[in-house]
């Protein structure tokens, strides 16, 4: 009796299962088609972002160049957006940007490279396991914190040694920016050096080279493309860096090569103009986009160059 009813129950449930299966099959077929389309839409977001950036920058920059001739913008050495008869020369900003980036690379290049040499050639596994996370922590500190560090710690130190330095100067943010970039240069260069095969080092040792000789005459030349790419990416990062220079370098738009003076970078100018009350539609508002466009093109070229260098000159082993 009980087995009979159980059997009947099971036949019913099998029939139900078949029905259910048919229903889910249609649903899942629908899903199989829907999912790729949805995911494709998501993937398009990143493309749209790029187009959004280029479109907004480009359209407003064109508007700016209708009011200010393009030659004045790129050759003018005077930037006075707020005065009675404003002048929009971008050269002081480019100058400030390049000088701060050069200072940063003078700090980050050698230190980052040496750190990479130590990590990949000399450090034991235990030391490396402690040092790498520390470098990652350094890389994760927000830039505004570095700005605070530059303004309230590094600048007073520089001024106590060298009293001519202004309270806001380009030297201190340059140095701190270098410190900020060290982890990036170090870890990218280290990756390049660790991918040099061990057999090459052993070959150098077999020829009687010391570890130092093998590092500088074999490993570094072999990893050069990666190292140069890491330097270029570091410069690009320094060019795009905003908060450190905004805080510690002030806002005077000097066209000078004197590192003790305050200079403004492209990024700091954007912050100043956008943070102040520039009414939409005014020339100064459009100058924001022209400067941003210049900045965007600079960093884009740098990044493309870095990719090109690391692809083109990579030596395969």
């Amino acid at each position: 009796m009980t087995s009979n009813s159980e059997a009947r129950k099971s036949t019913v449930s099998v029939r139900e299962m078949i029905e259910k299966k048919k229903a889910t099959k249609i649903l899942s077929k629908f899903k199989e088609k829907l999912v790729p389309m949805t995911l494709f839409l998501f993937a398009m977001v990143s493309i749209l972002t790029t187009f959004g950036i280029i479109y907004t920058l480009f359209s407003e920059t064109v508007e700016f160049f209708k009011r200010v001739p393009i030659t004045d913008f790129f050759t003018g050495t005077v930037l006075r957006p707020l005065s009675q008869n404003p002048e929009f020369g971008v050269l002081p900003l480019i100058n400030g940007t390049l000088i701060s980036s050069i200072i940063a690379m003078l700090v980050a290049g050698p230190i980052g490279l040496m750190a990479a040499v130590y990590l990949s050639e000399y450090a034991s596994d235990r030391v490396r396991r402690v040092l790498k996370p520390l470098l990652e922590i350094l890389a994760g500190i927000p830039t505004v914190v570095y700005g605070f560090f530059a303004f309230t710690f590094v600048t007073p130190i520089i001024r106590s040694v060298w009293p001519d330095v202004d309270a806001t100067n380009i030297l201190s943010p340059g140095i701190v920016m270098g410190i900020m970039i060290i982890p990036m240069v170090a870890s990218l260069s280290e990756d390049a050096m660790s991918s040099v095969p061990k057999s090459m080092r052993e070959g150098a040792f077999a020829l009687g080279a010391t570890p130092l000789e093998s590092t500088f005459k074999v490993v570094i030349p072999a990893a050069l493309s990666g190292i140069i790419a890491s330097f270029i990416l570091g410069i690009s990062r320094a060019i795009g860096e905003t908060m450190i220079v905004t805080i510690a370098s002030g806002s005077s738009k000097n066209f000078t090569f004197d590192v003790t003076e305050s200079m403004q970078t492209m990024t700091a100018y954007i912050v100043e103009v956008a943070g102040g009350d520039a009414p939409a539609g005014s020339t100064i508002y459009f100058s924001l986009y022209a400067v941003a466009m210049t900045l965007f093109v600079f960093t884009l070229l740098m990044n493309l160059l870095a990719r090109y260098v690391s692809r083109k000159f990579r030596e395969e082993y």
Binding site: T50, T242, I270, L300
Partner: peptide, 12 residues
């Protein structure tokens, strides 16, 4: 390339 765009450009 997007990863290399300065954050301030995203601000704009």
């Amino acid at each position: 390339n997007l990863a290399g765009v300065p954050s301030i450009v995203y601000g704009i």
